[in-house]
Design a protein around this nucleic acid. Sequence first.
RNA 1: GCGCCCAUAGUUCAAUGGAUAGAACACCAGCCUUCUAAGCUGGUUAUGUAGGUUCGAUUCCUGCUGGGCGUACCA
Length: 565
Amino acid sequence: MTFLESLKNKITSQLGASALVFSYPPSSDLGELSLACFEPAKKENISPVELAKKWAETIKQNQELAAYFSEVRPVGPYLNFFILPKLLATEVIAQIKKEKDNYGRNNNGRQQQIMIEYSNGNTHKEYHVGHLRNIAYGDAINRLLSANGFKSIPVSYINDFGIHVAKTIWNLKKNPEYTNQNEAKGWLLGKCYAEASQKLTDRPEYKLEVAKIMQEIESRSGDNYALWKETRNWSIDYFASIYKELDVKFEKTFYESEVIAEGLEMVNTMLAKNILVKSEGAIIANLEKYDLGVLPIIRSDGTALYPVADLALAVNKFSLYNLVESIYVVDVRQSLHFKQLFKVLELLGYQQRLTHLPYDFVTLPGGMMSSRTGNVITYEELKTKIRTRLLAETRSKHEDWSDEQVAKVADVLTIGIIKFEMLKVSADKIITFNIEESLKFDGYTACYLEYSYARLQSILRKESGVSLLGKIDFSLLTEKKEVELLIKIAKYPELIILASAKRNPSELTKYLFELAQLSNDYYHAVNILKADKKIKKVRLALIKAVSQVLKNGLDVIGLDTLDEM
RNA sequence: GCGCCCAUAGUUCAAUGGAUAGAACACCAGCCUUCUAAGCUGGUUAUGUAGGUUCGAUUCCUGCUGGGCGUACCA
């Protein structure tokens, strides 16, 4: 239990109340902890102002509890607590020192298994910034669940069998130069797809050729099937390299091509059960009585649509793992599709909790991203642009560094910028990805956070001789900024719970930014290394705790840290 | 047509129904003999519209306006 939790429990029990809602005052002039008395006053049938006054006295009657505070002050309908800095510092810093990388983690999930599917790669297609939002969001939720004590199982589902594959192969055969270059083969397939898509829009008469290729791939024999197998691996290898760069790991990867047969069997069973019906030559799930319209399953030409694999995939997940929840991190535009899919699974008798975790799309300043109009930025292009700038910037700061050192910093910051830009906005907001803006190093950015951490490390490094093991006099932390920092890091475990409950990593990015601001503010205002010996020691202990919290929080949103930059 | 989402400062975003609606960018003025100036300090600016519920609404409900997305053989 954290210091703040136990303090809130003690107050609640002394007041003889239950389920009190605590909050934090908007300004440190109003204390460190606050209790709004509106609701409890209703139960007691007195005004909240009166109750706050009354409760202030009740707290003071308990000497042991009152000793935690320099003041318990009723302010209108609020009861505000001024926590003694010495106690706050002693307890919070000790806990961080003890738990280190585990500070902030809890076991609320009791190791129950939650599967989270994200990444949604399409082989034979370009990998663009939209995918990056999915990866950053899915990976952060995965890490958040894990930090809250769930056994989170990240899985990736790769669509290697759709019509887009046939389009790419069709164009590849017409333009063999796509296979003869030195560039990454998976990346070239993406270019090949974009061109194919454009050609087929301009000349729809080629669609018959594409359909023929698709049929041959589905029949799993012939030259086109062999070419599919070969090119599929190019994309899969390419994805693996991207995941490695982004530091995301999957426990299992599902492929559409491997579940489609099972899905077709399910279709037959469901036809027999009348869950699916034939209509206008196609096979559909008619969900109109649930206000969910119609879900087409099999085209009238007999070929399978996306839900076939999706149904089999969902069932596979449940049979392979004992899940309390199965999460799908997928673009909000597929909301109706998932409602339909979940309803069909329910009709089949599955009762597990299924969650579609939607996020809105990423656009570019020039308008909606689309392969067709060419207004699309691939991961490769984005990464290169950002990394090139960072290499130059880092070199200009450190002329004496080796190329390896400079590259290391640029690599960590590049990935950090991409993930942070995707996470700092809540999922229901459209992100207009402005590369120039993302490249800035000021303000609410990944670089700012990373820089703040590196600065703290730098100070700690300069005084590595000072032992932080011996007795530290925490009563020496009396500066206002020190108390603000202390209460901020004391709150961190609550943020992990909140961000996970709301499934919203931006709660955490915001918190970390505020912590970094406080931290930068602090070491500008207060000298650490030149302070008296005892004060220096306690201030070093404080910034060590702060840097630990920064590191832990950055880790939860998937960002690596740098000791120097 | 129907359904879902969005609307807050010049721009991009915050705000479990609660205290003076917070930040960042941009702009202006300062700070390197002081732990990395990728930093810090100070200043200017906002809840689309009409109602309702409430002691209290940026938040909940309804209408309107504007924008986005989805809506049977794309994924």
